[in-house]
Design a protein around this nucleic acid. Structure first.
Lengths: 231, 231, 231, 231
DNA sequence: AATGAATGAGGGTTCATTCAT
DNA sequence: TATGAATGAACCCTCATTCAT
């Protein structure tokens, strides 16, 4: 308010901006503010759905105010989309670390299924957001750039596995890669995504840690039985 | 009231007045009013979710007014629950018609899987409502009386199949009935419930009629390979 | 519905209508229905006020349906007015039974105050309805025929008492009858009408039976001290 | 904003800008907005009762919109309670200014009664709101913090007066302070609170200014006669 | 960069009342 | 005489969003 207030700002003399970024005590840190909003929004959207989520509820649990939310993300939908982007950005590289192409087809398939299983088992926000997206006809995820490319890479991995497995006489030759991915996804997704209704129906939460190992083995088993060449 | 007035009415050619009671032209027909509201509500809730659905939108597409909706169902949530109940009531008896217990275990298993597949493939509202319920932690379906009992009957069917299959030397003996149901459900549910994100990811709608036969065969195949006793 | 249904009605052959009236088992008894509605309505209006009362709430606790309420009383306001009328009709004759004019002025005054006290102490519905009327500017009680005439009679009683008391040298001669009635009413009304706020303020319910005798004596005392000629 | 614009404004002759902060022309002034809402709400609640009052009606007569009402007071009931609080806050200090403890007991009692009379005579909103509260069982005033404490102070004042009056041989020794307060309140409250029904009954509005002096004297007289030790 | 105050459109719900039987 | 079904207007409240500072 006073003139000369600019001079009164926390002095940044000479320190490179990169270093300042990581200073947690800085008063105004746009990146941190954005991250904070995104984290809270992820929880809220994941818990309540797109329509069920409340902008006020998100703002309240944030370190900043509602206005900032609009300042950075434009609208509720914009924020939702940013959440989707963030969640997808988080996965990006994980799969490549498995080096599946270096494994024997059967072992590679097992590794892929186990990875997929573990991923769904741990990333519940991701699972919920996918569910929510489907209620909205995948309208928003469609605009997430990394979405399609990332999924394409899974198909490549599977295609490679199938090809090598067939060549080695281990796998059947009549399996479509996308169909197989659908099959694997189904088995890994459902037990998390629909765990509440399933739990209510059978008095058994399918996502409970106690069942994890058994389900993991079951799904790996089912997939391997499905792809393996008989006799 | 007058005799002559009958002739002026839209023709009812020969249909006895008893049958016409359920006629759309009757002004005071609570059963029809309720059914009409329920039908419209099923669409709206299924399309928009519980929070996303608009009571006004439902009322508008109804033959009556918004007030009647509250007259019969008390609240938006009450109506949602009634929808859940109706959708569940619709399935109840269908399964018993299969007479699975009279079939050979392998054929019985095939019949069960095919039935489950077809059911999910056709009853998209049902699938969507289950998805929506999971976003709300299955809070509402918990209060639907028929829900648990109906689900229990599926498990009995599977248990019977497994037992007979084991006895006949056809099935493995280490399979849990509920786990198997989860596996079958996963495969049938996912391709419908998550078809939008799947379609966006791979440019292929997994619920498209053109893929139905292939997926149906695939799933039956996967389940049978899973339960069958190996060589 | 069938023709000849009239003959099927509970037969009333020859019994005079007066006798039939009092038959509690009669199916349709307008007088009893009306009384039933009025009784329930008195409770509801007295408990909730005119705006706070709910027509549905009244109808629910009645032996008949909401429609009858409109059939007999026309509207919510009509019913409210009928309640007012009933409550006033109930008092009508009570006061005359005291034969105050036959008593010595001091004893007569005591009797009048005690009667007024007891009446307010017992007829809480009456007190509440008066309170409610004042919130509505006495709009409805204005149309109750017995209201003004009944109140006029109290003034006559007081005037008579004052005159006789002055003549006997017992009472002051400078007291206005209406003012005195206001004074007496104030003392008897307030402890019932405002008992809730008073109770909250002082932790003591002024209408509690335990205090009744003391308050009764106090008020009689206060009034007599007020009217008595000094020295 | 321009210098010249000031001259065009309705004159603010010489009042320093600090004082003008509460000026009606400021657009962002939460305190004024709140006060404005409270003032209008006081009228509406007092005139219509809690249930009878309309949020829309309040908002309409306000400088702001209905939304702000909820922004500041949360709900209709919250606003009602705030009104109660405000009305009570207004009285709080008034009584202490009388310095009753410095007066001779008889004069002190007279001052107290006159103050009570004048207060009820002037603060009709207060009287109405107390009436309304009693219809709701004092549910809301119970939560007004200042309510009990303030009332306690009146009792202390009366106790002090009684004690000193007894010591001076002027007052009777058998009077309970709370009972006396009830007596005084009754006399001051009733003529305002029930003036409509009283007016209808006797064709005389007891709260009319023309009667004020007479009633004031009557009530003081009645109270003094009641407390005075008899010859 | 950041904020409390303000907003209009629409949300679910309830009211007293009337219609058709 | 009596009734369940139906109604439209209005009620209280909440939403995502923007303004002025």
């Amino acid at each position: 308010m006073k003139k000369g207030s600019k001079a009164a700002e926390p002095d940044t003399n000479g320190i490179p901006s990169d270093a300042r970024r990581s200073d947690a005590r800085r008063k105004y840190d746009p990146e941190q503010t954005k991250r904070n909003i995104l984290d809270v929004a992820t929880q809220e959207f994941s818990a309540m759905g797109l329509t069920g989520a409340r902008v006020d509820a998100i703002a309240e649990r944030t370190n900043t105010t509602k206005r900032m939310l609009y300042y950075y993300f434009g609208s509720k939908e914009g924020l939702y989309q940013a959440v989707l982007e963030k969640v997808y950005g988080d996965i990006r590289t994980l799969e490549q670390d498995l080096h599946i192409s270096e494994l024997d087809p059967v072992e590679g398939m097992r590794a892929l299924v186990e990875f997929t299983f573990d991923y769904h088992d741990r990333q519940r926000d991701f699972v919920r957001l996918i569910t929510i997206e489907n209620i909205h006809g995948a309208k928003y995820v469609e605009q997430v750039k990394t979405f399609k490319s990332r999924n394409a890479s899974v198909i490549h991995t599977i295609e490679d596995l199938l090809q090598r497995g067939i060549a080695a006489g281990q796998f059947r030759s009549d399996i479509d890669a996308i169909d197989l991915h659908l099959l694997i996804s189904s088995l890994c997704f459902h037990r998390i995504g629909n765990r509440h209704t399933f739990g209510t129906a059978f008095g058994r939460d399918p996502s409970h840690p106690r069942l994890r190992a058994r389900h993991r083995a079951m799904i790996v088993d089912a997939v391997l039985r499905f792809v393996r060449k008989e006799g």
